[in-house]
Design a protein around this nucleic acid. Structure first.
Lengths: 252, 252
DNA sequence: CACGCAAGTATATTAGGTACGCAGTTACTG
DNA sequence: CAGTAACTGCGTACCTAATATACTTGCGTG
């Protein structure tokens, strides 16, 4: 298999890569690691990452909280597994396009779609370099998209990293906005007050005074931003950013 | 001042913008919001964001935990204030360079320096669009750097957003790596075992099998990555990414 | 067939955020 | 000037959530 056969992986990675040993004595297991991860992912999809507590996940499975620790070492490890699981389809991903540019574009779109399916990804702690099977598989696909370009390997990796960090942060902002609105509405319900809506543009106009922020002030009061909230197409915005990055890559 | 004079800002933003009213009756305050924020920032600088608990901050100031709630509404609000405070110097930032490109480059460098001074920024929850005075001031500087280019305002904002999200995520990865190493060493100390060091490259070579990840496998086993850990210059890496983005901007 | 590892459970501990009410303090108000 | 309202810092208490530990029971293996 590999050079370091047998040497134990760092904690957390072993499970991720399916290398947690384990004798086979004792009662039959009532669950599998996948069951636990699936339940957690389902919960996160439905209620956001905050909805995921060990107790809640265990409930979902009809087990007690502590039983989960027979399958994962810590909540953190569970989060890693969830993160990996969220990208579960990428192995058999086919990138269409006959040039690197369209392939990379569709690669970015795929990532964005994954995040849209699992918005909680944007809330993940992300304490560790993503050495998960699916993350690497996805990177591999990105490298594949750059086949045939004369780019150095290191540059390819950089491009991949650049695109995916842009995608993630764009998605993060989008979902932060969604959450902010949801939260505001929730607050408005139980406070029973008029609760001024404070659109984003209204806030900007309120806060940005002309002396300190001349350019922002100008933008905030221009018609362009004026009816932002309605006609605003986040997806187009995202695509534009991707194209800009691709332009930069083209220059390499 | 502005169109909506008097309408209360959403919670959290009022303090950020110095608009938490408050009569002046009652005992003199023993602290100021700035004292609290400063203490929290000092703690975070020294011990990371995990070191920041309300109790710990209060201890630092010689007050009880609950007294802090006379100054901030919640820990979350405190975090927002910390985030804003971390960028405290940007108002009087001078961007050198006579063309937009060098100005933007130095703008990115400044952001990176801020993060280097306060690495905990990369660990922040970031639940909300950054409507903080200093964030906006920094954006304003970015716009300023793009003065004279024919770019549309919306495009300028996109460029700014793109660069800063890249900067943040690059810094995040860098500090994640630092933390991972520190944590590994800490674990090695109290376990008293040989505790195989598992360099990043060794891990990659162990995990990435040729069949599934041909390109990654190739990279992992190439000399280029081989002695990565030592000769690896993260700063140069970062600069390269910035240049790539700037190339993309140039194409606009 | 009994030994001992392993699975699920119950209980408890710890950490951290925050609601609530108290007692003392100060400044506005009549 | 007295009264009172608004405000201070504090102590206590509650809640959520992760997880350590010890127990009970199941079952493959020697």
């Amino acid at each position: 298999m590999s050079s370091d056969n047998g040497r134990p992986l760092p904690p957390g990675l072993d499970l991720l890569w399916g290398r947690r040993g384990g004798g086979r004595r004792g009662p039959r297991r009532g669950l599998s690691v996948d069951d636990v991860v699936d339940a957690a992912v389902r919960l996160a999809d439905a209620e956001g990452l905050d909805g995921v507590s060990m107790a809640r996940v265990a409930d979902e499975l009809g087990f007690t909280t502590m039983s989960l620790y027979r399958y994962v070492a810590s909540k953190d490890e569970l989060l890693q597994l969830m993160w990996n699981a969220s990208a579960n389809g990428v192995d058999d991903l086919v990138l269409d396009g006959d040039n690197w540019r369209s392939r990379l574009r569709s690669w970015s779109l795929v990532q964005r779609e994954v995040i849209d399916r699992h918005p909680w990804i944007t809330q993940m702690p992300m304490a560790v370099p993503p050495l998960a099977p699916n993350s690497l598989a996805f990177v591999e696909r990105g490298l594949q998209a750059l086949d045939g370009t004369g780019l150095a390997d290191a540059d390819k990796l950089r491009v991949i990293g650049l695109l995916s960090s842009y995608t993630l942060s764009e998605a993060r902002m989008a979902y932060d906005a969604v959450r902010a609105i949801a939260q505001e509405q929730a607050a408005a319900v139980d406070s029973a007050e008029p609760a001024a809506p404070w659109s984003f543009e209204a806030l900007l106009r309120e806060l940005v005074d002309e002396a300190t922020y001349p350019r922002l002030h100008n933008i905030a009061w221009s018609a362009a931003i004026g009816d932002n909230m309605s006609g605003f197409d986040e997806r187009a915005e995202f695509m534009f950013g991707v194209e800009t990055i691709l332009d930069g890559v083209q220059a390499l």
